[in-house]
């Protein structure tokens, strides 16, 4: 394998024959290994050790003062006996669903629409992407005011003669409000990725379709959408992976409330650790999440390979 890549180079094997294999290997690989060493050390120390330690900690009761002690499966037992875990799982699934229903199609729609703009396309792109560069703390401060009972959205609603909505404190609105805020902030980046794909579709395909009598809708339906379908699939998987782990907005905006309505699974992990200081149970929750997501990943990979065969 190594000989076949032309980009490879290094000291040639000119070492005298009598030198041992080890010495030749050292000479050949010296710089390559030396340059890798710091990265390997840091990856072990700050990624692999924590990943492995998560499993170990899940069997311990962690106490910063008295020291850790082994408790067997107690942490897992308390996880399965905890009704809040079920709420957290349900909330996470609901959050993922809302992100798909409210957020996933928006960037696709706007990418196709903006690709058809003949003027001001650059300006519209920048405007759509601008919320992405807002720091999260500004996003939270701004939208807390926006969703306020005396904020601008309720101002508009009462002007239209409707009853004001408690976006944050009403249980059935709180998660929707969070997803809407996140979509507002982040749809621009996905939109730009789709836009690049839409713009790279050869124009003469549309020309040919038009000559054959296809209307605008049919051209979008049979040319544009199939051309970006692989990208749609990829971003769908990435979004699902990302939304299983969402917790920061829920924490910053509502602290998991009102009445646990925005308590996602990841937020529950964080709260177990840093509010209840129960690091063992939090580690066990993390391990369970790891197993479920890993299992889904393997399953998906298997299904994909079956589909290809």
């Amino acid at each position: 394998m190594e000989q076949s890549t032309p980009a490879m180079y290094g000291p040639p094997d000119t070492a005298p024959k009598q030198k041992s294999r080890l010495a030749r290997g050292t000479r050949k690989y010296f710089w390559g290994l030396l340059f890798l060493l710091p990265a390997i050390a840091i990856f072990i120390l700050f990624l692999w050790v924590p990943i492995v330690k998560g499993f170990v900690y899940s069997f311990y009761h962690i106490d910063f003062v008295k020291g850790d002690n082994f408790v067997g499966f107690d942490n897992y037992k308390s996880v399965f006996g905890d009704s809040d875990v079920l709420i957290a799982v349900k909330n996470t699934l609901y959050y993922m669903l809302l992100c798909l229903v409210i957020g996933f199609w928006v960037p696709i729609l706007f990418a196709i629409a903006i690709s058809e703009l003949r003027r001001f396309q650059g300006f519209v792109r920048v405007a759509a992407y601008l919320p992405n560069v807002l720091p999260f703390v500004v996003l939270y401060g701004l939208w807390r005011w926006f969703y306020d009972s005396v904020g601008p959205i309720n101002g508009l609603i009462t002007k239209m003669g409707l009853d004001p909505i408690a976006f944050m404190t009403n249980k059935s609105w709180s998660m929707i409000s969070i997803v809407f805020m996140e979509t507002w902030q982040s749809f621009g980046s996905a939109m730009l990725i789709y836009l690049a794909a839409v713009l790279s579709i050869p124009r003469d395909w549309y020309e040919a379709a038009e000559i054959d009598g296809a209307g605008v809708w049919n051209r979008i339906r049979y040319i544009t959408l199939p051309s970006i379908s692989k990208l749609v699939g990829l971003l769908l998987i990435l979004q699902i992976i990302a939304t299983t782990q969402g917790y920061q907005s829920q924490l910053a905006m509502l602290d998991g409330g009102p009445n646990k309505a925005t308590l996602t699974y990841s937020l529950y992990i964080v709260k177990n650790a840093f509010t209840r200081l129960d690091y063992g149970v939090a580690s066990a929750l993390g391990v369970l999440m790891f197993l479920v997501l890993g299992g889904i990943g393997v399953l998906q990979y298997r299904l994909q390979r079956k589909g290809e065969n």
Binding site: V49, G54, I269, G286, M289
Partner: peptide, 16 residues
């Protein structure tokens, strides 16, 4: 390491 979701090891990361 790209395939391991960071939230699953946020706690051991802190303890580490």
């Amino acid at each position: 390491t790209l395939f391991i979701p960071p939230t699953t090891y946020i706690i051991p990361n802190f303890l580490n």
